[in-house]
Design a protein around this nucleic acid. Structure first.
Lengths: 211, 211
DNA sequence: ATCTTTCTAAGTCAGCTGTATTGGATCGCC
DNA sequence: GGCGATCCAATACAGCTGACTTAGAAAGAT
């Protein structure tokens, strides 16, 4: 049984072509012929790997999500052995922000997915189950901040976690619209973190990258 | 020259049909034939009032924006003669949130517009000029809060205003996805406002609606 | 060498899209 | 009455879409 090409690798390559297109025209403006051209293959070849547009988009979605979580976990694990909760939080938030061209494409893809999820029950369920995970992760970091005495005790970690998640999405929106720049968005995040960790000493320069 | 029908009223009526459809399928899923059917008119009639799809959508956008600002200003002016900045802020934020079916449609329309603006230079310019206005308005309220001694002096009104705007958009996203309910979203807003106005006494029950 | 499976290309099809065109109502006014 | 503007309906059209079909190329297995 000849298996000359790596099926999954091809599928990922095609999926990335989807996002390259979707990040410039929006998901709804992407046709199968466009994807084939962008990926440098024929329409027939594309249909050999994905039997329907829906299957292609679903795969592309999961692929994108995988890449995003990989970027975040890599970034967090690249920190010192015992990073402060504040720093971990900052790195996560910074990575989720559409600061450079790379993450910008990721966020655009995420928005295209979000818009579709609003009107698609299946995708909506997918999002509903993903967000609480992130929220719990953030809340845990904040709880640790409270335990360390860096975050005022009257702050509710769970609420603050949700506020942070919402904040990122909102900032991304206005980032993409060009209402503010990457530096301004990052400054706002740092400003908000400084308010949250108001009991903490200013972070060491070695830990806190230049904002 | 006979002018039997109110041209502008018809156009507004058609525009509202656009948003009714867009709020359930997304803007890209709305065709001219759908709009005509939803508005209860023929395609030919629609084309009589809007010479192109672009003109229709542009008009619909401005119409929607008008309705939203009307809702907000009405709500603010319905307050007592000298409302506290905190209360004005809360009413604005509450009105911007997709809490009931009415505002939900508005927010869905707003998102459809946002997605289009990301990839459309003209619309993007429109958004870029609108946001700072709102930001200045919020910042002014916060500045007044600082002057009254209700908001800690180390809070930066301008940054906090932008954070509030971003927060609303983020909360709306997760509201639409069903990640949290209207009550939870409103509670988060009140929680955040309580943090902002930490130097203020608890608002009088007459001023602060039950949350 | 030939068979079998995987892979690729090209063409076709029905359906939908926005727009243009055409024809005919309906009304105020000279 | 009929003239002219406004309003409306129906149809036609070219373009694109996703899906399907057909046919052929490539390569390991026998």
């Amino acid at each position: 049984m000849p298996k000359r090409v790596d099926h999954e690798a091809r599928r990922r390559q095609i999926a990335s072509a989807v996002w390259r297109l979707a990040s410039t025209r929006g998901l709804d403006g992407v046709g199968l012929r466009d994807v084939a051209a962008e990926a440098g293959i024929s329409l027939g070849q594309l249909q050999h790997y994905f039997s329907s547009k829906n299957e292609l988009f679903t795969f592309a979605l999961k692929h994108m999500e995988q890449l995003a979580t990989n970027r975040i976990t890599e970034r967090v694990q690249a920190l010192s052995a015992t990073p402060s909760p504040r720093l971990v939080l900052r790195e996560c938030l910074a990575e989720m922000l559409a600061l450079d061209d790379n993450s910008r494409t990721g966020v655009l893809a995420q928005i295209a997915y979000f818009v579709r999820a609003i009107h698609d029950e299946q995708l909506r369920g997918y999002a509903q189950q993903g967000t609480p995970e992130l929220r719990r992760f953030f809340a845990g970091l904040l709880r640790e901040g409270v335990a360390r005495g860096e975050v005022p005790a009257d702050r509710d970690p769970d609420s603050e976690a949700m506020l942070l998640i919402g904040l990122i999405d909102g900032l991304n929106s206005y980032l993409l619209l060009g209402v503010h720049t990457a530096e301004q968005a990052l400054r706002l995040v740092d400003y908000h973190l400084a308010n949250l960790f108001s009991r903490a000493p200013r972070p060491r320069p070695a830990e806190e990258p230049a904002g």
